Simulated assay, not measured.
Amino acid sequence: MVAGGRGAADDVTTDEIEAALRDVARLGGFFALDTVRGPAPGEGRLTPEGFEALARTVNERYGTAEARIGVSVAHLGLAARLWSPVLACALVHGVVPVMDTVEWAGDGSALRLAGPRGRRVARPIAASADAVAEQADGVLQRVESRLPAKVAPRLLAGNSASALVGSAAQLLRSRPGLRGPLTELTGALLETGRLRGTGRITGPGLTFRRRSCCLYYRVPGGSTCGDCCLIR
């Protein structure tokens, strides 16, 4: 059940949630979330083994043996893949996909949702912050319970906040008419649970300054990201 204790009257049909996800996938990139009706035979959910393989690929790509770098960068990418479709469905279609059956779509980082279902969001939109956060950051935290390397909890929370605001900024560029409710919901989400205190929005384009670092600057030839706390 989506956080907030709402009943079956708030459920949406599989057809409706699939249509919403197909629509927001047109925004591109991390907004794409495929669906499959029913659990895929032989496939796991967001398994620790799948995440460990992603983190290892990151380390190989950037030529670093520091395990926590691969974990952090892979975690940031996963956060973006969770936040983007959830946020877009909530703002564009007024529904939240229930993400407890999200799973790896193959050997890469893409995801899909098995047995898709969803719930309607509350109005005003900020009242849905807990429900939206549960279906993105809540899923992310369950993955974090079995990471292959130790990473500071505030770094992980900062990654989630960074992915949230990055997804919101991309949605704003694609759908500028959503500025009001999008800004309202993003602000409410940054005050929800562990995201509180992770950073602040710094401009009308939803630029962001986080209070932790994702560690990308530590890869050979790496640099700071646009929202990094290390930027002066």
Rank of each mutant, 00 (worst) to 15 (best):
D130M: 05
R26L: 10
D10H: 06
P148C: 15
G197K: 02
C213V: 03
L87F: 03
G28D: 10
G226H: 15
V2F: 11
V151A: 11
T186C: 14
C228G: 14
L189W: 02
R232M: 08
A65N: 07
I17S: 02
I69V: 06
E66A: 11
E18I: 07
R196V: 05
S84A: 15
R175E: 04
A9E: 14
A74N: 10
A168E: 07
G197C: 03
L172T: 15
A55T: 02
G7R: 07
C89Y: 15
D227W: 05
E103I: 12
S212L: 03
L156T: 12
D34N: 07
I17W: 00
R56M: 05
A90G: 03
D34F: 13
L78Q: 04
L155A: 12
V219D: 05
A168Q: 00
V132H: 03
A79E: 08
G166K: 07
L54P: 09
E144S: 13
C214W: 11
T202E: 08
T207V: 04
A25S: 14
E134K: 13
D10E: 10
R142P: 12
G44A: 14
F51M: 09
T192P: 09
E52N: 08
L78V: 08
A40G: 06
T64E: 04
I17K: 12
T186D: 03
R119A: 01
R146Y: 14
S167I: 11
L147K: 10
G70R: 00
S84G: 06
R22I: 14
T14F: 01
G187W: 05
R68I: 00
T13M: 08
P124D: 12
A65I: 09
S223R: 15
A53M: 00
A131F: 10
M99S: 13
R154T: 07
R119G: 05
C229A: 15
A55D: 08
V2H: 11
A114H: 00
P39V: 15
P176E: 11
L182N: 09
F208Y: 15
G193M: 06
G203T: 02
A65E: 06
L178M: 14
R123F: 04
I69R: 01
A53N: 04
S84E: 02
L82D: 01
H75C: 12
R210L: 02
V2C: 14
L113S: 07
V12Q: 12
A105H: 04
C228R: 08
G203K: 05
K150D: 15
D227I: 06
V102M: 11
L78H: 00
G77V: 05
T186R: 01
T64P: 04
A67Y: 02
P220E: 09
L172N: 06
V71P: 01
G199W: 01
L171G: 00
G180C: 00
N159P: 03
L27N: 04
R173N: 15
Q141G: 13
R123S: 14
L76Y: 10
P181F: 11
S167R: 02
V24S: 04
R194T: 10
P176L: 01
L147N: 15
S160F: 07
Y216K: 10
T202W: 07
L195M: 08
T224I: 02
R194Y: 06
I69A: 03
V219A: 06
G221R: 02
L21N: 01
G118L: 06
G205Y: 01
A80T: 07
G63F: 07
